[in-house]
Nucleic acid binder design. Sequence first.
DNA 1: CTAGTTATGGAACGATCATTCAATAAGGAA
DNA 2: TTCCTTATTGAATGATCGTTCCATAACTAG
Lengths: 188, 188
Amino acid sequence: MARPKSFDDDVALDAAIGVFREHGYEGTSAQMLVDAMGIGRQSLYNSFGDKAGLYSAAVRRYAIAETHAHREALRTGNRAIEGICAMVDRVVREAGRPCLGVNSIAELGTSWPALNEIRAAADLSLRTAIVAQVAAAQAEGDIAADLDPDVIATWFVASFAGTRIAARGGASPEHLTSLGELTLRALR
Amino acid sequence: MARPKSFDDDVALDAAIGVFREHGYEGTSAQMLVDAMGIGRQSLYNSFGDKAGLYSAAVRRYAIAETHAHREALRTGNRAIEGICAMVDRVVREAGRPCLGVNSIAELGTSWPALNEIRAAADLSLRTAIVAQVAAAQAEGDIAADLDPDVIATWFVASFAGTRIAARGGASPEHLTSLGELTLRALR
DNA sequence: CTAGTTATGGAACGATCATTCAATAAGGAA
DNA sequence: TTCCTTATTGAATGATCGTTCCATAACTAG
């Protein structure tokens, strides 16, 4: 009953994610977004409200994809520790590209309620998966039993942020690999 | 032979640092800076060139102060490991305030040559101190001897970044303390 | 074919951006 | 005092910011 959209919201959102990852929220202009997304300015505002809404949508989509990738990696191998290693390896391997989650925290802190909610949901999902996997690895004797799985989950998330910051600061792949190894070593 | 300045560059710079820490480079306007620094617009440009120059000067001053504080903490106690613990504790204790170093890396990556130089100098200074301290702690049997001190130095820096990102994301002091403990545990 | 509805593209909005100009003020050297 | 130099102040610069208005295009239900 009306003119159909000429683009897919998620495809456009992925393009926006690419820009926000590299330039941050304040460093990205509406012009940069319409250029990267390949849509008109008005279409951007029709679909996402405003720049803040688009950013929130981008962070949400990114957080969901990132959480999913982490959980997928955790399912690797037979022993629980193998999945944990796979998760760490993936972070090390992909640390070369800026992380929208880390960058949004660094840039905006907890000042956006909408972002806080998105992060809380992603954190819960990821942490739940890590806690279960860690408990399993502890039962299998691959992680020290005296450590609280919940603390370890926080530990992993922080280590990932540290690795990503190191990479964004120019650390070599060898250094990043070392970081991944030490992250796992802390738990033995 | 001419009118003297009515303000001290370093005092003004500290005020600028406070604004940049919280709002980042792109999120800070010249108006916010003159308000916080308590000087006129023209004085800002006379003393620091432009906004980018002021930011570089702020990051430089911050990096020097932060590196100095780290090195001071390292000198604590009798055994080398005590100084290392003090350094970690300080980061945990002060993680509540945003880190200009971490935030500048997250926001700008390695795209500013001037910042890269500042970081390289600070990194070298800090890493040198940590390496020496770690080697001493290894000789005293408090850190595993099979680990490369240089890798450990990278590890500390990354852990600090992770802790600070966690704090900026809203982590509780208890969680931050746990992160500090696990940072040290990785080395035993 | 027509009427109704939404998407699109381009020009335009006021506001704010970083930066500078021009005029005045303040001190040291003579 | 007088001159010279620099600091300060406030207004003004053009550019770009995020956002919206408006006319047109595209599609569907009737």
